[in-house]
Design a protein around this nucleic acid. Sequence first.
DNA 1: AAATTTGTATGTTATATAACATAGTTTTAT
DNA 2: ATAAAACTATGTTATATAACATACAAATTT
Lengths: 235, 235
Amino acid sequence: MPAKKNNTPVEPTIKDIPKLYNILTDEEKEYLLDNHTTIHYKKNDIIYQEGEKPTGLLCLGEGKVKIFKEGVSRRDQIIRMATAPDFIGYRALFAEEMHIASSEVIEPSTIFHVPKKVIYNLMKTNPALSMAFIKSFASELGFARYRTVTLTQKHIRGRLAESLCVLKDIYGFEEDQQTLAVYLSREDLANFSNMTTSNAIRTLSSFVNEKVLAVNGRVIKILDSDTLHRISRLG
Amino acid sequence: MPAKKNNTPVEPTIKDIPKLYNILTDEEKEYLLDNHTTIHYKKNDIIYQEGEKPTGLLCLGEGKVKIFKEGVSRRDQIIRMATAPDFIGYRALFAEEMHIASSEVIEPSTIFHVPKKVIYNLMKTNPALSMAFIKSFASELGFARYRTVTLTQKHIRGRLAESLCVLKDIYGFEEDQQTLAVYLSREDLANFSNMTTSNAIRTLSSFVNEKVLAVNGRVIKILDSDTLHRISRLG
DNA sequence: AAATTTGTATGTTATATAACATAGTTTTAT
DNA sequence: ATAAAACTATGTTATATAACATACAAATTT
């Protein structure tokens, strides 16, 4: 196993997905441990693609992935940024539909694949597990609706500011408590904020001029969090 | 009980919510029948408002309601149009959050209120019920994401055309197989399509000129469904 | 190391749509 | 019945943002 540059000490296991593992009985835990596979992905790998059929529950044990939908005229829209220990691709699984979005790795990731049959069996015996998925769905749906309104109604500055706040909530800061702990291209930032890449670059630059951010390549420091939130709030 | 002008013959009961009632055991059915209330609403009534705390599961037994979020600058956005026998307000219930949207009656409606405790008890004993909610959530989340992309990326004509197609899917046609079986103000149509009222009126007029629609007040006839779908698809 | 590709930066122009204005029409309230 | 309010219609103007263009920088490939 290669040495890690970050401070994650050990290889993650499916035990690191608490909202799945922790609510199981000992017997169920054993069943899960015996019936899942671990897959490692490197940056830019595609985990699944729009139109494919889900085969099981995917749990992000480590890493960062983006989930995006192909837009009307080839302009992608990032609908979700996931982090460990999130479930991914489970909407299509439970809806019994094809994936309506694709999933691409942003940072080297470890994924646990629990076959559909296995997860359904667990849900039959454990009501708390179903409840956990219901909770996940309810909160994702809330977020999706909130975003629909803001992405359609806020102006560019508000949208980008909001996206940065959301990224901060999801990934947090590095040790300096300023640097966003996710490193996206301007294009990804644009696709997450519903704007063109040019406008993401431009707006980022004006935030730097206004001393709200400091930007160096993909490294974004939030210097004035209050102002950033205010810009986001006012639209 | 007043005579009905439409062909719904009888007062609905909670037995008319199949995805809830039909999956229960006899014992559970009795428990549900004994532990819910029926509320009648008239047009323009508010069922619940953004910020309120849900107290139970609401099932729309009859009628039509709109669910909308207050936008950034007082511009409402209709995020869902519901019809019997839909669940409403259940996202906030299961997320254990305040409502993030408001619900207003479009057509006289009958709603069954199942106290939170009761629905949770039923879910504990009946895994199929949880599964039904998971399915509901998964399909709503899919729709929400699809709409986020189209409302942000399609042009006005495409957005309005899509909204009309969606309304057709939800409410269907009247007996003539042409007239949309829901009668919305231009403002509601606009708020459902992410545009100003003026632009909804204007675009509706151009669809009439193009013989795609026939419009008389709030009565909308879809004359050329293929073209309408094409306009929606091309954005 | 050179060449190619990909990403970033910034200026200019075009355009879709909001904002505003006015008026006619229908519905609701007094 | 009349007044008031809400809704619909259409024309004009303003503006936010996309589209396009060019250049430079960084990363990747040969």
